[in-house]
Design a protein around this nucleic acid. Structure first.
Length: 492
RNA sequence: CGGGAUGUAGUACAGUUGGUAGUAUACUUGGUUUGGGACCAAGGGGUCGCACGUUCGAGUCGUGUCAUCCCGACCA
């Protein structure tokens, strides 16, 4: 299978095909029969579950609670906030009827025209509207605030073009929605959640990100400010991996959510929303994978260590026994381990298969090596093999897992930093961006400049980054003065 | 919505001037194997996207239709 994968690994030629093949071959997900939707397979879902668990804990540490709101949103809710409806109207799935009936020839079903809904329902593309409609009932006084809710759910956006994990019609995500008594508190929360996303991306996914603020045209529909983390994929393109929005009082006003403040004066509630989706898995795959398949960071790998025995029939019982001891010890240390002694697959197949699945560490228990008290250990990130003593192997593995986590992060940082350029000249920019990368350029802040760059190069302003020292300069397109540099890249 | 292409086995694809449907892989069974994706043998699986037409005869030709993919547009 991975032989076919290797044929596709001229990544610069067709990175997206390589990516799609990898996702399918590594048994993560597949295209569903329903157009644009995906099936997440058990192995892929295990990664998502682990991400969920970690993120959920991080949210809860900041006081966020989980809740759940309806899938279906009355159409009228969506039109309350003008910009919001404009942003999402084109990609909404609409429920118009509530019943089917058998057709005249009795060999199928048709929509029952008598069951037309008076008001159509929208399958949520995001839940701001229905949640703020609910918050109206929850909020009367400044004492009711803040409300810090998160929900894990699916959403539906009828995208024109889809790609597994990166942009599917239906996807899984978490969406946090908070309500605050003051502007400052809400802005603070929006930034705080972005920082959590960045921490998660870097410490767990080992994906370095650039944090920043979106330009007005790229901003979330209905937001005053959209904060974003942008990651660089191995082909130099940017992937927006998480966003946090400061929504001002837009939704408070649209849904009439007023409270009495300490001065006994009515005031509209301040809002934030923030989310990350299964797209993070796309980021994970596209950041680390190599020509042998996935490379998963130990912190998120469903299987951290795989043990494969090799021996003749009569040696297997002894190998099973040796392995059982190691498995027990590793489990005690909180390391997830799989012992694969299936005899219907040859070792070579297993090696290739677990590499394809990105298992960070592989241990080979060979009867031959074992006579000398040795085992072969391979790390997935570098594919380096080593023979080490079976004594203390558990501690060795633990350290190796930490090392792999650090190493793949460093590798990703190095790659990204080597592909960030400062650029002052538009002609040079147009030429260089063909090869991908992040470009830090001065921007005059106008939508015209932004549009011209997009038209000429397909690249967009990803964000105004926080993390770089900013100095004023001259916009390379218009020649007008510019306050700061922005991050420009082609994006997924 | 504009431009281009493709619909044939689970998947990926051949199929010549029209003559009863093929290859690879996957699957099943048996045997030999097992330190880097095994080999041999046998077997199962198809209303050739759908409809109509031309023809003695259509996977192949014609018309229509549906679906999918790619490039644009669109897209957090």
């Amino acid at each position: 299978m991975a032989k076919e994968l290797k044929d596709l690994t001229k990544r610069s030629e067709d990175y997206s095909k390589w990516y799609n093949e990898l996702v399918v071959k590594a048994d993560l997900a597949e295209q569903a029969d329903v157009r644009g939707c995906m099936v997440i397979k058990p192995y892929g879902y295990a990664i998502w579950e682990k991400m969920q668990r970690v993120l959920d804990d991080m949210f809860k540490e900041t006081g966020v609670q989980n809740a759940y709101f309806p899938l279906l949103i009355p159409k009228s809710f969506l039109s309350r906030e003008a910009e919001h409806v404009e942003g999402f109207a084109k990609e909404c799935a609409v429920v118009t009827h509530y019943r089917l009936k058998t057709n005249e020839t009795h060999d199928g079903v048709v929509v029952d025209p008598a069951a037309k809904l008076e008001e159509e329902l929208i399958i949520r593309p995001t839940s701001e509207t229905i949640i703020w409609n609910t918050y109206k009932n929850w909020i009367n006084s400044y004492r009711d605030l803040p409300i810090l809710c998160n929900q894990w759910c699916n959403v539906m956006r009828w995208e024109m073009r889809t790609r597994l994990f990166l942009r599917t019609s239906e996807f899984l995500w978490q969406e946090g929605h908070t309500a605050h008594a003051t502007r400052e508190e809400a802005e603070e929360r929006a930034k705080q959640m972005l920082a959590i996303y960045a921490k998660f991306a870097e410490e767990y996914m080992a994906v370095p990100v650039v944090q920043g603020v979106k330009s007005e045209t790229e901003r979330f529909a209905g937001a005053l400010d959209t904060y974003t983390i942008e990651a660089m994929m191995q082909d130099g393109k940017a992937l927006q991996s998480g966003t946090s929005h400061f929504l001002g009082q837009n939704f408070g006003k649209a849904f009439d959510v007023q409270f009495l403040n300490k001065e006994n004066k009515p005031e509209y509630a301040w809002a934030t929303s923030w989310g990350v989706s299964t797209r993070l898995m796309g980021a994970l795959i596209m950041t680390h994978s190599d020509d042998n398949g996935l490379v998963l960071p130990p912190a998120l790998a469903p299987i951290q260590v795989v043990i494969i025995p090799i021996g003749k029939g009569d040696q297997m019982a002894m190998l099973d026994e040796k392995a059982a001891a190691i498995v027990a010890n590793l489990k005690k240390m909180g390391i997830s381990v799989k012992y694969d002694n299936a005899d219907n697959k040859r070792p070579g197949f297993k090696f290739a298969d677990y590499e394809l699945k990105g298992v960070p560490v592989r241990l080979v228990l060979g009867a031959r090596d074992l006579e000398q008290g040795l085992v072969e250990i391979m790390r997935r990130d570098t594919l380096e093999k080593e023979s080490v003593s079976i004594e203390g192997i558990e501690e060795y593995i633990k350290n190796l897992l930490d090392d792999i986590q650090k190493n793949i992060y460093k590798k990703a940082v190095d790659y990204r930093d080597a592909h960030i350029y400062e650029c002052e000249d538009y002609e040079e920019f147009k030429e260089k961006i063909k090869d991908g990368g992040f470009f830090l350029c001065h921007w005059d802040g106008t939508a015209e400049t932004e549009a011209k760059i997009k038209e000429d190069t397909q690249a967009t302003i990803r964000c105004v980054p926080y993390m770089f020292e900013q100095t004023p300069g001259v916009d390379m397109v218009s020649g007008k003065p510019a306050v700061a540099r922005v991050l420009i890249a082609r994006a997924y």
